[in-house]
Computed example of a mutant assay.
Amino acid sequence: MNRPEREAAVRRLMERTPPQVPPDLYPEAVRRGGRLLRRRTAARRLLWLLLIAAAVAFTVWALTARPWVEPPSQTTPPVSNW
């Protein structure tokens, strides 16, 4: 299909009357959109809650386990000059 044929096809499409939209389409779209927004908001809040809970759990673990402190020696050093 060359350019003039495409332009003619587009003109024919644009000259036709648009199809009739069902009258209940708008309220249905608003209802579904609202539900989608509520689900996204709930998912975002849940993810933030999980992130905060993980941060708190890591902080509590780090404060109790102290992974930055060198562990105590398991053997005693040899005794000399006794």
Results as ranks from 00 to 15, higher is better:
residue 24 D to L: 13
residue 19 P to D: 03
residue 6 R to V: 06
residue 3 R to Y: 09
residue 26 Y to V: 09
residue 39 R to G: 01
residue 18 P to E: 15
residue 29 A to N: 09
residue 23 P to R: 15
residue 38 R to P: 01
residue 40 R to W: 10
residue 16 R to Y: 01
residue 11 R to M: 03
residue 45 R to C: 12
residue 42 A to I: 02
residue 9 A to V: 03
residue 44 R to C: 12
residue 52 I to V: 05
residue 46 L to N: 11
residue 12 R to H: 09
residue 4 P to I: 04
residue 8 A to F: 07
residue 40 R to C: 07
residue 18 P to T: 11
residue 29 A to M: 15
residue 20 Q to F: 04
residue 9 A to D: 15
residue 47 L to M: 07
residue 29 A to P: 00
residue 31 R to V: 00
residue 26 Y to H: 13
residue 40 R to P: 00
residue 36 L to M: 11
residue 52 I to Q: 07
residue 3 R to W: 04
residue 31 R to C: 01
residue 45 R to D: 14
residue 37 L to C: 02
residue 11 R to W: 05
residue 19 P to E: 03
residue 43 A to S: 08
residue 3 R to Q: 11
residue 51 L to W: 01
residue 8 A to K: 15
residue 37 L to M: 14
residue 29 A to K: 02
residue 16 R to H: 00
residue 4 P to V: 04
residue 28 E to A: 14
residue 9 A to E: 15
residue 33 G to S: 10
residue 46 L to V: 11
residue 40 R to K: 10
residue 21 V to C: 09
residue 10 V to D: 00
residue 34 G to F: 01
residue 25 L to Y: 08
residue 19 P to W: 02
residue 22 P to C: 10
residue 25 L to R: 15
residue 42 A to E: 07
residue 31 R to D: 01
residue 47 L to S: 13
residue 30 V to N: 01
residue 14 M to V: 05
residue 17 T to W: 02
residue 16 R to K: 12
residue 29 A to E: 13
residue 28 E to H: 05
residue 36 L to H: 11
residue 25 L to K: 12
residue 33 G to R: 02
residue 10 V to K: 15
residue 46 L to M: 13
residue 51 L to I: 05
residue 25 L to Q: 11
residue 24 D to W: 12
residue 16 R to T: 03
residue 26 Y to K: 14
residue 31 R to L: 03
residue 9 A to W: 15
residue 9 A to M: 08
residue 17 T to P: 02
residue 13 L to H: 06
residue 36 L to T: 04
residue 9 A to F: 03
residue 44 R to V: 10
residue 13 L to C: 09
residue 21 V to Q: 13
residue 47 L to D: 04
residue 40 R to M: 13
residue 14 M to K: 12
residue 42 A to H: 04
residue 13 L to T: 06
residue 11 R to Y: 01
residue 34 G to I: 00
residue 4 P to E: 06
residue 52 I to E: 07
residue 14 M to W: 02
residue 37 L to F: 08
residue 50 L to K: 06
residue 31 R to T: 05
residue 17 T to K: 06
residue 22 P to D: 12
residue 37 L to I: 05
residue 12 R to P: 01
residue 8 A to T: 11
residue 51 L to R: 02
residue 46 L to R: 10
residue 42 A to Y: 09
residue 12 R to V: 06
residue 4 P to H: 07
residue 13 L to D: 14
residue 44 R to N: 08
residue 34 G to W: 00
residue 27 P to A: 02
residue 22 P to Y: 06
residue 19 P to A: 04
residue 32 R to E: 06
residue 37 L to H: 04
residue 8 A to Q: 15
residue 32 R to W: 01
residue 41 T to G: 12
residue 3 R to M: 07
residue 30 V to G: 00
residue 49 L to S: 15
residue 18 P to I: 01
residue 11 R to L: 08
residue 24 D to T: 09
residue 23 P to V: 10
residue 14 M to I: 03
residue 16 R to V: 00
residue 47 L to T: 08
residue 50 L to G: 08
residue 10 V to M: 12
residue 25 L to A: 13
residue 7 E to Y: 08
residue 47 L to V: 09
residue 7 E to V: 09
residue 45 R to V: 07
residue 32 R to V: 05
residue 44 R to F: 11
residue 14 M to R: 12
residue 36 L to F: 04
residue 50 L to I: 07
residue 3 R to A: 05
residue 33 G to M: 04
residue 30 V to M: 12
residue 31 R to G: 00
residue 19 P to H: 01
residue 7 E to K: 13
